[in-house]
Simulated assay, not measured.
Amino acid sequence: MEFSSITFSFFLIFTGAAVFASIALYTRQPLIIAYIALGTCIGPYGLSLVTDTKLLSDIGHVGIIFLLFLLGLDMQPQALWATLRKSTVVAISSSALFVAAGFGVTALFGYSLQDSLIVGAAMMFSSTIIGIKLLPTTVLHHRHIGELMIGLLLLQDLLAIFILMALFSASGGAEGMGTSLLYTVLALPLLIALALLFVRFLLLPLIRRFDRFHEYIFLLALGWCLGLAELAVLLGLSAEIGAFIAGITIATSPIAQYIAVSLKPLRDFFLILFFFSVGAQFNIGALAQVLAPALVLSILILTLKPVAYRYLLKGVSEHRSLAWNLGFRLGQASEFSLLIAYVAVGGALISEQASLLIQATTIITLLISSYIVVLNYPTPIAISERLRRD
């Protein structure tokens, strides 16, 4: 048997996930914790049973793409536009506050100016997966809190794209960075225009003509989602943005709900791989080097984000209970934070310790935030029957 094969890796991951998930359910723990813990145990920094975490991370990223595609399928363009206008002030104000907080803590522990700036930038984002995965479907798609969350997360995704482009372009100097950022700004409306034209003149006619063949509709949806995601990447945007645009452009089609239901099991398959890879890529043995700043920064993020969102949302006329609810659901660092850490250290823009600090803070806040939400708010995986909502 080839123990390093992808088949054997999948066997270990999904069999292990079933075992860890069973333990989590019996001990009334969130399932996301089980997947991250499994990655830590059998990944390269644990028992080293699964070593190709880069491949698994890339595969798991498909789960995030499908997640954003499904979100787009359930959003009406008019409602999204109204929500984005209200979310802009909150997103920009909160991002500036979180950058300042991350910068201050990192600088306090003696990190360099550049390390502190990049760590601060990584702290401005909240997790798309935690936020959306733990929000009940009916609440996400048909209530105001779902619209607000999507608006805030999409604006954060756009900010993340600019930061990643800046990091990728840093080696080219200020002129190269400016050109790349301008290219990104122009690419978004171009992508939307191309998507609308393609849907109107090709995709919707095909759906109307062959909507009786469900297998064909399923394949067409997969091709459209992944195709626009790849086009977005080619234009300098993120695959997540492309997938969301792919979903929202066909949201008015009568077949949209069938596509959404069909893709959910596929999405969950890839998301398990994503959370496994998060745990597997974290070097727990080196945690002692950054433990003190990671704990301080994690506590600050877990407390500051809910409070900041509560007051900022209240300032734009949202109810207090909704503001607290949304604040706690977005009260963590993000998978984009991990990506910033990997890109920055790969380009020698930050030290290994600063990258490890971002990773440690992200994982700690993901874990604790999951517990806070699952134990106190309605979620599809709530431990309490009273709070469990699909």
Results as ranks from 00 to 15, higher is better:
residue 49 L to H: 04
residue 328 F to D: 00
residue 211 D to S: 13
residue 282 F to L: 12
residue 103 F to N: 08
residue 129 I to T: 08
residue 174 A to K: 07
residue 87 S to D: 02
residue 314 K to Q: 15
residue 378 P to S: 10
residue 240 E to F: 08
residue 53 T to R: 05
residue 207 I to Q: 02
residue 308 A to F: 06
residue 164 L to K: 05
residue 43 G to I: 09
residue 7 T to S: 09
residue 252 T to I: 13
residue 265 P to K: 00
residue 76 Q to H: 07
residue 242 G to I: 02
residue 207 I to D: 01
residue 375 L to M: 06
residue 278 V to K: 05
residue 202 L to F: 12
residue 234 L to V: 02
residue 248 I to D: 01
residue 28 R to M: 09
residue 92 I to D: 06
residue 74 D to K: 15
residue 53 T to H: 08
residue 343 V to C: 15
residue 313 L to S: 08
residue 220 L to P: 07
residue 182 L to C: 13
residue 89 V to C: 04
residue 95 S to E: 07
residue 111 Y to N: 13
residue 229 A to H: 09
residue 70 L to V: 09
residue 241 I to V: 02
residue 250 I to L: 10
residue 154 L to F: 15
residue 204 L to W: 10
residue 228 L to F: 07
residue 283 N to D: 12
residue 292 A to T: 06
residue 180 S to Q: 10
residue 82 A to P: 03
residue 343 V to H: 14
residue 199 V to D: 03
residue 147 E to M: 14
residue 8 F to H: 11
residue 129 I to Y: 11
residue 287 L to H: 07
residue 68 L to S: 01
residue 78 Q to D: 11
residue 82 A to H: 13
residue 363 I to A: 05
residue 372 I to Q: 12
residue 226 L to M: 11
residue 24 A to T: 10
residue 44 P to A: 02
residue 383 I to P: 09
residue 8 F to T: 09
residue 125 F to I: 05
residue 212 R to C: 02
residue 366 L to R: 04
residue 361 T to P: 02
residue 20 F to K: 01
residue 109 F to M: 05
residue 210 F to H: 05
residue 119 V to L: 09
residue 236 G to N: 05
residue 78 Q to G: 03
residue 272 I to R: 03
residue 90 V to Y: 09
residue 262 S to K: 08
